[in-house]
Design a binder for these strands. Structure first.
Length: 565
RNA sequence: CGGGGCGUAGCGCAGUCUGGUUAGCGCACCUGCCUUGGGAGCAGGGGGCCGGAGGUUCGAAUCCUCUCGCCCCGACCA
């Protein structure tokens, strides 16, 4: 490919709207342009990267026996109404009406349509298992598109779906996908972790996410360096730091106007971890819940949500109404309202604590959990860096990550409402057991840049680079240079190596800068002086290492380097 | 949806507070000369409804009101 014929609009300056490294470099490198918030144009270079990534995905999906198909992006409402998601999903779904006033929506995912197809075409246990996937556009009216291509309103997703006869089959399909994902992300040159994740509203029991470390990410994971435990912090557990129990009598103490753990602990000259922090929450259906965490802990909103569903903190006057005492003095002992559900952090289970006395200006000391109050015990605390792994005791690390893929066990959440059933050996009608599995190819590209760049630009992993090699004839009007470039390009073509030749009649400095910025892994530099010595240079973009070789050996040389990488 | 910031040439910005010639700078672009191993130099040139609408004023990029867009933090993220 000739540089002069390709649209590669590189930028010397950083566009003001870009923050994330991958975003900046994709714009500067001439990979993408923004049309509107969360809507991007893929320029030729980026399309090549996406094709490389998608090719890897197709190869690995095919390896596990999945079949590619393609589904509409415009859906009738009825299918979504059957699973209840037409109502459950809010503004995030693009909705429209067709000319006959029929409700339609734009695909934000394809569980419904895949299941619809399965319901028509899969009838017997003999048809199972099946794995279907597509690489298709999804549309979501994101509340906040951000970080360039990382969170957009329209994006390509590889989504696959498994259809099995039973849980055993689902387990197998799930594991096949996990293995395929490991191969895909490894081949793409990424550092990544498979972590336990929230099955959440997707339904089902088990879910994992594939996470690529990067500061530009939106999630945090906890990782144990010793035993390999890894989980999204939304459900990560750790050993709570243990503090020796401070002996104290069970008694009320006067704490005038002392409300927060900080204030009371200072006033009573006690450590925050000797306190019970009490928070009154109101669930979606209006029921009060008292959440208890240790004074040195914070309540994890997501973890709490798994237990009680959506909720909000109680307002000040609600606290008085429900508990008969002002915020700051509430606690689990001697509650006026005995009907309240109490959920406590497991770290509070033993020891003696101080907490609100449910009486204005008073706290209680010497509270002995399970003696003085009853509660449901759950892990509801936010975990912190360096807390101990619950499996092996080694310190945990917290890492910011980009979610590049996820896998869900769906079970029958979609097959039952859409009547995707099959006849088993006994002739009984049974719902198909499903799984769904996603990869964001553009996020893979962005994560690759986040993980592979320097002050000069992108450094693509060879497998997903838009071109493996860029040929830089420094002076195209020099005849010898042009001849050497021609023969090197022919040799590269013969070897099946894709290359970009910078045939522009411009100063060498610009070629070097653009080559570094666009991040093609190998540069073959053809300079008039070096050529007189019968040599060209081959530069490794990542290591900056330069090797001189005869022009007719250059293609071989690069080919060998590619194998090593 | 809440909080903050920003809209002036393709890109990056100054000018706005304190209204007043023809709106300016760097890069990019076009022409010519020169130059060819890390975004050169000289000379000449083109390009602006100052996001939009309304208002105040003799006069608005600048002041006021409304509106649209983009970015960041948070909420949300099936």
């Amino acid at each position: 490919m000739r540089y002069s014929k390709m649209l590669i609009p590189t930028l010397k300056e950083t566009p003001s709207e870009a923050e994330a490294v991958s975003h900046v470099l994709m714009i500067r490198g001439g990979y993408i342009r923004q049309l509107a918030a969360g809507l991007y144009i893929s320029l030729p270079l980026f399309l090549r990267v996406m094709e490389k990534i998608n090719t890897i995905i197709r190869q690995e999906m095919s390896r596990i026996g999945a079949q590619e198909l393609s589904m509409p992006v415009l859906h009738p409402a009825e299918v979504w109404q059957k699973t209840g998601r037409w109502e459950a999903i809010g503004d995030e779904m693009f909705r429209l009406k067709d000319r006959t006033d029929r409700d339609m929506c734009l695909a934000m995912t394809h569980e419904e349509i895949m299941t619809w197809l399965a319901a028509r075409e899969l009838r017997s246990y003999r048809d199972l298992p099946q794995m279907w996937y597509q690489i298709q556009t999804k549309l979501r009216d994101e509340a906040r598109p951000k970080s360039g291509i990382l969170r957009t309103r329209e994006f390509i997703m590889k989504d696959s779906y498994s259809f099995d006869a039973d849980e055993e089959g689902l387990k197998k399909s799930y594991e096949l996908h996990a293995h395929a994902y490991h191969r895909i992300f490894t081949r793409a040159g990424l550092i990544f972790y498979q972590v336990e994740s929230d099955p959440g509203m997707m339904g089902g029991t088990t879910a994992h996410e594939f996470m690529a470390p990067s500061e530009a990410g939106e999630d945090d994971i906890a990782i144990c360096g010793r035993c390999g435990y890894a989980a999204n912090v939304e459900l990560a557990v750790s050993v709570a730091p243990v503090h020796p129990t401070v002996d104290m009598p069970f008694e009320e103490v006067h704490t005038p106007d002392m409300r927060t753990v900080g204030e009371v602990s200072q006033y009573l000259k006690m450590q925050p971890h000797s306190f019970i922090k009490s928070l009154l929450l109101i669930t979606k259906d209006g029921k009060p819940v008292l959440a208890l965490v240790r004074g040195d802990e914070e309540l994890h909103e997501k973890k709490m949500q798994y237990i009680i569903g959506l909720y909000r903190p109680a307002h000040k006057d609600e606290i008085v109404d429900i508990l008969g005492v002002e915020a700051g003095f509430i606690g689990p002992v001697n509650m006026k309202n005995k009907e309240i559900r109490v959920i406590a952090s497991t770290s509070l289970k033993s020891g003696l604590y101080a907490g609100g006395a449910n009486k204005k200006d008073y706290h209680l000391k010497g509270i002995n959990p399970e003696v003085h109050f009853q509660a449901e015990w759950h892990d509801i605390r936010v975990i912190h860096e360096n807390e101990k792994c619950v499996i092996c005791g080694a310190p945990l690390r917290i890492q910011r990550v980009i979610e590049i893929g996820n896998i869900f066990k769906l079970g029958t959440k979609y097959s039952v409402p859409l009547n995707a059933v099959y006849l088993n050996k006994d002739g009984a009608e049974v719902p198909i057991i499903m799984g769904s599995y996603g990869i964001g190819p553009a996020r893979v590209a962005a994560a690759a840049i986040e993980q592979n760049h320097d002050e000069n630009g992108i450094i693509w992993p060879v497998a997903i680079a838009p071109f493996a090699v860029t040929v830089l004839p420094l002076n195209v009007s020099d005849e010898e240079t042009a001849k050497a470039a021609d023969s090197i390009c022919s040799a590269l073509t013969a070897k099946g190596i894709d290359y970009l030749i910078d045939d522009r009649d411009i100063r060498p400095g610009i070629k070097f800068k653009d080559a570094d910025l666009t991040g093609i892994p190998f540069q073959i530099v053809i300079g008039a002086k070096t050529l007189k010595e019968g040599l060209v240079e081959i530069k490794n973009r990542r290591t900056k290492e330069t090797t001189k070789t005869a022009p007719d050996e250059a293609a071989d040389f690069v080919s060998n380097l590619m194998i090593v990488m």
